[in-house]
């Protein structure tokens, strides 16, 4: 990127910095490697060996069981659809609301901001929200997984402050060129906010991908279950206390199945990250004005 002359102290720092980060990467990643390894291991091996990276006997039984359901592909499809659609809706609503709120001269701005902050702390709870969703006729519709959670007020406030920090000179000059508010938002603000948009695309996408609680509440039709709910259901017995386990059930799920579920649920969204990552580095235009 930028050329910088490096002092000896700086070089020492560089070396340590690389080592520290590498260690961090290992510490965070090794348990995941164990999860992957355990998902391919036999039950006996998981019980006998406290920790391993490569199982002695490799079995794909856990994955076969997960993929044995007819609904697996369908649930994946539901999850991808909800994630894509939800992220688009959320981004659209968040960005369009954050921009006006970032304008200090907007009348009523403070009232609106307080209104938003208030909802971060107070909420009506599960039953009243369910009533609203039901009266809107959203039950058993995939929209019930998106609309009630469309804007995260937390994210809204952060996006707002990002917008607020954009150099005003840019907007001023655009306005002199005859741009309307809409024009400024569309042509100046959004293109400048790529890293922010990439960040919140990631945040919203991960949220929608991981969410299953709303599906539990609002979706009765199992054909519309997202993948997380299906996986939850696959290893349900795991959370039941042992002694009180319902006798109608078969054996408790195997440890390897629990691990395989983590892998299946995580890998798709993990693969999504690098595509967004490159946008985090692009802030270019911004500084040229400010500097």
């Amino acid at each position: 990127m930028h050329k910088m002359h490096n002092t000896p102290l700086g070089r020492v720092f560089d070396v340590f910095n690389h080592i520290i980060l590498l260690l961090m990467g290992l510490v965070t990643f090794i348990p995941f490697v164990y999860v992957i390894a355990a998902s391919f291991a036999t039950e006996a091996e998981i019980a006998a060996r406290p920790f391993f990276i490569i199982p002695d006997t490799i079995t794909t039984a856990a994955y076969e069981y997960i993929f044995s359901t007819n609904t697996f592909v369908r649930s994946m499809g539901v999850s991808v659809l909800v994630t894509v659609l939800g992220t688009l809706v959320s981004l659209a609503l968040t960005l369009t609301m954050a921009y006006p709120l970032s304008r200090r001269n907007l009348l009523g701005r403070n009232v609106l901001l307080n209104l938003v902050v208030f909802t971060m702390i107070f909420n009506g709870g599960m039953i009243p929200t369910y009533m609203v969703v039901r009266s809107l006729g959203l039950l058993d519709s995939l929209w019930a997984l998106i609309l009630p959670v469309a804007i995260n007020p937390f994210y809204l406030i952060i996006v707002k402050s990002f917008f607020q920090n954009l150099p005003e000179e840019l907007e001023e000059s655009a306005r002199i060129d005859g741009c309307s508010d809409m024009g400024v938002f569309w042509k100046i603000v959004l293109p400048l906010s790529k890293p922010v948009i990439a960040t919140f695309t990631l945040f919203y996408a991960v949220f929608y991908w991981n969410d299953f609680f709303n599906a539990l509440l609002y979706i009765s039709d199992s054909a519309k279950w997202p993948i997380q709910l299906l996986l939850q259901q696959l290893m349900m017995v795991a959370n039941v206390d042992f002694g009180e386990m319902d006798t109608m059930l078969a054996d408790p799920p195997e440890e390897s199945l629990k691990m395989a579920v983590v892998v299946v649920a995580t890998v798709p969204i993990l693969l999504f990250y690098p595509f967004l990552q490159k946008h985090f580095a692009k802030g270019i235009l911004l500084g040229s004005v400010k500097g």
Partner: peptide, 10 residues
């Protein structure tokens, strides 16, 4: 719609 309408729950 989704935050203030259910606020009676408080």
């Amino acid at each position: 719609l989704f935050k203030y309408l259910p606020m009676w729950g408080v």
